[in-house]
Design a protein around this nucleic acid. Structure first.
Lengths: 145, 145
DNA sequence: ATTATTTATATCGCGAACGATTTAATGCGT
DNA sequence: ACGCATTAAATCGTTCGCGATATAAATAAT
């Protein structure tokens, strides 16, 4: 039995699990808005800055366009975003929020931060814990990216 | 602009990203073994304790059986595991390692810990950092589970 | 200018995740 | 023993994630 191959010693397994569990915790709130977690991420990117090419969105989310394109197509079908050809660069597809997509920001703001706060409350993470966790993960992300 | 909805303030997004990036870092090593990351997780569970019902494996991996069953079916097709009906409880499907599945442990041991160690090296995480990260994530996992 | 190369998206195929439903075996109450 | 709820897996449908490839526009090279 190799200690290095024990599941309990795997950082990656922990991160994979916690990522799924937190996403699941989001689900009931996102359901009310009729969106999925990856769609929520796209919306957050667009709420910060509307009308971006597919590439910029993908880059911001550290995803490939072959993941983001179908995601955006589904979001367009739901009426959350509009996709249009770039005028200066004809290769680009510019993605912008529809009225419905914009309106979701207020709805998200009203239920998600408070709801998720409550959900994470029993974890008893101090702001300091939180900041530490954040910075260590950022280190890993930046080195692997 | 709501600060709470900024992508950069989202713990979940970080965890989701880092999880994907580390999984991607595993990929070249796992490719040599002809397996995927979730398949590697299943193998680790079985290397620790061979011949387990689907439910126990799923529980250990914090996954549902509707994720694990197809995963195991693919692994059976590849000759990594064998699936057989439980004798005492006819509802169970017992999963056990084939010769090939057992042999992969040595191969994994030979390339993965060292290879991934190198890959994670530039992150400069001390053993202490690592332990802290681990315990905080465990706290979250246990509360959400 | 014409061709070659790079860049931006899109398409395709497969393996996960997961909610919802189904099937089959077990256990429980009467 | 009988019916009924419970439990273990499996199946189904949809969305992701991603390697590989295709398409088309822009840019560089000759």
């Amino acid at each position: 039995m190799h200690e290095e191959l024990r599941l309990d010693n795997q950082l990656c397994f922990r991160l994979y699990t916690v990522s799924r569990l937190i996403t699941q915790a989001y689900t009931p709130f996102l359901c009310q808005l009729g969106i999925t977690y990856p769609q929520y991420l796209v919306l957050m990117v667009l709420w910060e800055q509307d009308s971006q090419p597919v590439n910029d969105i993908a880059h911001r989310l550290v995803l490939e366009t072959n993941t983001v394109t179908p995601l955006l197509q589904r979001m367009e079908k739901q009426g959350l975003v509009k996709r249009s050809k770039g005028k200066e660069d004809g290769r680009q597809t510019l993605v912008s929020l529809t009225k419905k997509g914009k309106e979701l920001e207020e709805q998200a703001f009203n239920c998600i931060p408070s709801g998720m706060g409550q959900r994470m409350d029993p974890c008893q993470l101090s702001l300091e814990d939180y900041a530490q966790l954040r910075s260590k993960i950022d280190t890993i992300i930046n080195k692997l990216k």
